[in-house]
Nucleic acid binder design. Structure first.
Lengths: 243, 243
DNA sequence: TCAAAAGTGTTTTATGTACACCCATGG
DNA sequence: CCATGGGTGTACATAAAACACTTTTGA
């Protein structure tokens, strides 16, 4: 059995308004936090947050602590994306968040995570941590561009047949809010009438009986996710993959 | 960066007739090779073939060499399944093919592979390697039962929206043969007429212009897969994941 | 009363399914 | 000529898309 360096990186997604100051100013887009590397290789470039796998730590656990360290947040959804470990890919020590000095090979397991909307506003930002719109990323270290692209592909696929969209919302929400999440993730407008029927037919939502007041039009109903319904998600792995 | 033991295991699927002697005697079922463990833990139990990750070896490369060592075959399809690395799962050193003596933690990356029909007949079989029907497995070591179940789930999902069924067949085949693969994998009968239309509409098949003769009914046409068509497969990873 | 979004209804289109039926070959 | 599977046609059910229309609120 070969000993190797093991690291865990995480692609963290949040859905935030594009306008910097006004709340709900612009339309919502996907954002993700990156960290600036402070050593070779790729010194100064932006990269996915990550770190070494702690001694008694599980893989998902390591991804969670990465997320906490980087953004101060805890994930509403977490899933393994892929394990990268081919030697000499894309420069060197590809996929690793910290593969500089060590001479041996580096295998890194990448997770992807979703964090809530309001929480993300309060996320930590520093000189070496910055949020970027998912479609306006700077050049990244290693092959992290490919990894982000793959994570986006998984997110877009999954939003259509699972309930992950709820990870971007609070405990209760209107159908318009839910639709906005779908639209932001899929990148296209959806027909409100048909969206309503599809969601209702799927049976994943419960009517809370309450409505959202204070809007200058007809008050929309508030829904919550029906926890009893368990959609075909990741198959047999189920809760194993989802923290 | 933590040093850890790294192993690669592979779930290998073949589609073989259930009848032992007569060719094409019984109906086709999914089979997979297992190896008997010869050390603790789980000494004597059957487990997924696997081994340590070689020094300069890529992950998929290691899975391929595992497959060659176990069955003497090369995969017609290979894809990463999942990386297991939580400490103390399902006994100990779960997911690893050989995690006995070493005191440290073990992370193992599991692949799944498909091998051709005829090749599989000539596959190596020894005292410590035996093929089992996928739905009649003996008790397995570690949490390998869960892993096989997950691999089966992925296979069944993927056969419906990709061309992996061709991995079980030769270069040209009849629609009935292709349908048999689908039926064996999905575990249910399919309407021949509708199957034909769906496949033809997808555009993934080319007519070779030839027919299969020697059958005691109307000779069926032979098709091949249209290499030009590239279905939405694994997204951006594409050829990275597929060897 | 008007704008704006919530919510409902209806029509059209595409897709999947069931099944009747003809075609071509070996025996 | 007949049994067998190859291959085609067609009717029906279900789901998706397009879009007209009514409802309810704040301003």
């Amino acid at each position: 059995m070969t000993d190797a360096s093991l690291a865990v990186s995480t692609v963290i997604f949040a859905l935030r308004s594009s306008g910097r100051f006004g709340e709900d100013a612009g339309e919502r887009r996907l954002w993700l936090p990156l960290v600036r590397r402070i050593r070779e290789p790729f010194d100064g470039k932006w990269a996915l947050p990550g770190g070494p796998l702690g001694a008694g730590e599980g893989l998902a656990e390591a991804a969670t602590s990465t997320l906490a360290r980087t953004t101060g947040l805890s994930p509403r959804y977490l899933e393994q994306l892929y394990a990268f470990g081919d030697p000499g890919r894309s420069g060197e020590n590809a996929g690793s968040a910290d593969g500089a000095a060590c001479g041996g090979r580096v295998v890194s397991v990448v997770y992807w995570a979703l964090v809530g909307d309001e929480e993300a506003r309060a996320a930590r930002v520093g000189q070496n941590v910055r949020w970027f719109p998912a479609d306006e990323l700077p050049p990244l270290a290693f092959d992290h561009e490919l990894i982000v692209e793959y994570a986006l592909w998984r997110l877009r696929n999954k939003v259509e047949y699972s309930r992950i969209a709820s990870a971007f919302l609070g405990g209760s929400f209107t159908l318009a809010q839910l639709r906005e999440v779908y639209e932001a993730v899929l990148g296209r407008a959806l027909d409100p009438a048909n969206f309503r029927r599809q969601i209702e037919a799927s049976g994943v939502l419960e009517d809370t009986g309450e409505v959202l007041t204070g809007v200058r039009h007809r008050p929309p109903r508030l829904y919550r996710y029906n926890e009893a319904v368990d959609l075909a998600d990741q198959g047999p792995l189920g809760r194993l993959a989802q923290k």
